[in-house]
């Protein structure tokens, strides 16, 4: 139904997960250390977290820092590419919108 993290016990790479927790728009979300914010958000069942100028939802598109679709605000820093930023325990993530009615600031 959704993107998901390969479970550590099934992972051919024999990885060891160390948990971390961030908040997204105030809601606690669990992830593991080393995940990008985009990977963490996708694995938590979120596929969109930003709105385009028309209000259309956006999530990850290019995954490598080129398209700027996945921008979020992290600890009050705006316009952080979620696919390029590693999640840190306690990160406060808020979603962004380019829809003029909701948010006058342009990203």
């Amino acid at each position: 139904m959704s993107p998901k993290l390969v479970r550590a016990e099934h992972d051919a790479t024999s990885r060891r997960d160390r948990p971390l927790r961030i908040t997204v728009d105030g809601e606690p979300v669990d992830g593991i250390q080393g995940q990008t914010l985009a990977g963490l958000l996708l694995a938590s069942g979120r596929h969109a977290w930003r709105h385009g100028p028309s209000g259309a939802p956006r999530g990850v598109f290019c995954g490598i820092g080129v398209c700027f679709d996945c921008l979020v605000t992290v600890n009050e820093e705006r316009d952080v590419r979620a696919c390029r930023r590693r999640a840190a325990d306690g990160d406060v993530v808020t979603t962004q919108s380019r829809t003029p009615r909701q948010d006058e600031e342009h990203t």
Binding site: P3, R15, L42, A43, H47, A48, V60, F61, C83
Partner: peptide, 24 residues
Amino acid sequence: ELPGVFTAGAAQALAKGERVAVGD
């Protein structure tokens, strides 16, 4: 532009780089 449409590179980066499968 719909969420769930990824570049092939994004799917590759997520699978290889952080073990996230983009869909079922």
